[in-house]
Design a protein around this nucleic acid. Structure first.
Lengths: 235, 235
DNA sequence: GGAGGAGTGTACAATACAGAACAGTTTTTC
DNA sequence: GAAAAACTGTTCTGTATTGTACACTCCTCC
């Protein structure tokens, strides 16, 4: 019924990490099928979608908005594991048998989230090529991204990690401009993403500012000078 | 033709991180299909399957043996990203459009590796439920594992990370024994897995030995005392 | 059987980092 | 519009970690 050919090869060559503010693939086919399992929820900024330890057997899909995945350690430290945008899945752990959420999911902008029950998701993966393509593609690029984060942690100092995080965050803004805008994020959150303390982030932010790598008046959102900041990474 | 029901639900509940020295699922269906694209290669310990930077458009599947995935930084440091066993896939990056290998793959034991061409892999994923179940299941558990590694890096000290790495490595040995054997791995490699220096690994290894957490005569393979070592992690 | 290599045991100086504290500023909230 | 909360700027101290260096043992391969 719905046009399917456009998505059939989605798996093969999506430079899945490009500027991606809207889902890339043919949402129709997926939604038509998925919506039969009904639930779409709406969240405001900072609303909690689920909390670490919650039972959960739904895979979630971001129709619009953005979501932050974080983990809390026994000692109370928080780490941000991923920042997701429209078209991303999360909570897929339940497909692998996880009965409880391993982390928390929080909306970072007003978001519409689709809930797909695990059993139903499995069916979809079997029945719909477009769906399984999309899901596998998502898993692949998420894998690549997490692996890069891990490698970043293993190789680089906090200063370089912060530089990299800023550069990646900037991709949320417009592409192809030398100077990009970063969404409003506190130094506290940056610290949780980078894996260091806020005071350390503050120190480096001011260093970057002093050196002309980033621009801001003490107020977020800030502008980052792409080419300059890359210097930090490649030396 | 081949019995398929046994694998149909493989996706749903595989405690994929159990003792897994042989592929869990029905290899027949997969091999029958995959082998039409022919290549199986055999490697001896320390043979290189592919190197970082190599062009590559094959997904690889471990029929038997074990493989180490590692990455080399610009400054010459090496990091071990994963240790894989029979039944695991690797090199899936090409499915997401990566034209070159992002890291190196090295056999850690004599191994038989199946090469599946990218285009053929995509076909298999569409045609064979058992195949796409198996692949998605693999991606899910790999994802979970890498994420855990990342969180480990963010939260824990080098000492705890080493303890965790040893405990995980021990799962290669027999399950359900309080004392497990770890395959022969140099302190150098351990350092690359943990993300620290060899001298630091040596320091902690001797500390663990002194405290009775592990046993070895200066010679690998070593035995680790499971319950004791966990103490390090949970305090 | 001697040379070279790989792996281990150990020590030490330089440094990156965490943790904590406090003042100043802006933004929320009632 | 006052009080509270949230965020930034900055400083300090102790500690974990790196980087490096050297001695020692064991293996292996001409």
């Amino acid at each position: 019924m719905q046009p399917r050919k456009a998505t059939a090869l989605a798996l093969v060559g999506p430079s899945a990490r490009g500027a991606r503010t809207e889902p890339v693939f043919n949402v129709q086919a997926f939604l038509d099928a998925a919506l039969t399992s009904k639930t779409v929820m709406r969240y405001a900024r900072n609303d909690v979608v689920f909390s670490q330890g919650d039972p959960g057997d739904h895979v979630l899909y971001i129709q619009s908005g953005g979501v932050k995945l974080s983990v809390l350690s026994k000692t109370g430290k928080e780490a941000v594991v991923a920042m997701l945008a429209a078209g991303d899945f999360f909570g897929e752990g339940c497909l692998a048998g996880q009965k409880f959420r391993m982390g928390s999911a929080t909306a970072i902008t007003p978001s519409a989230i689709l809930f797909v029950e695990k059993a139903h998701m499995v069916k979809l993966l079997h029945k719909q090529h477009a769906m399984s393509d999309r899901f596998i593609s998502h898993m692949l690029s998420r894998n690549i991204r997490i692996e890069e984060d891990l490698i970043d942690q293993l190789f680089n100092s906090a200063e370089k990690r912060l530089a990299r995080t800023l550069l990646l965050l900037a991709r949320y803004g417009n592409q192809d401009k030398p100077v990009r805008a970063v969404p409003p994020i506190s130094q506290e959150t940056l610290a949780e993403m980078v894996g260091t303390t806020r005071s350390r982030v503050n120190f480096f932010m001011n260093k970057f500012k002093r050196l002309g790598f980033i621009e801001y008046d003490g107020d977020l959102p800030l502008k980052i000078n792409n080419s300059l900041l890359s210097v930090v990474l490649h030396d």
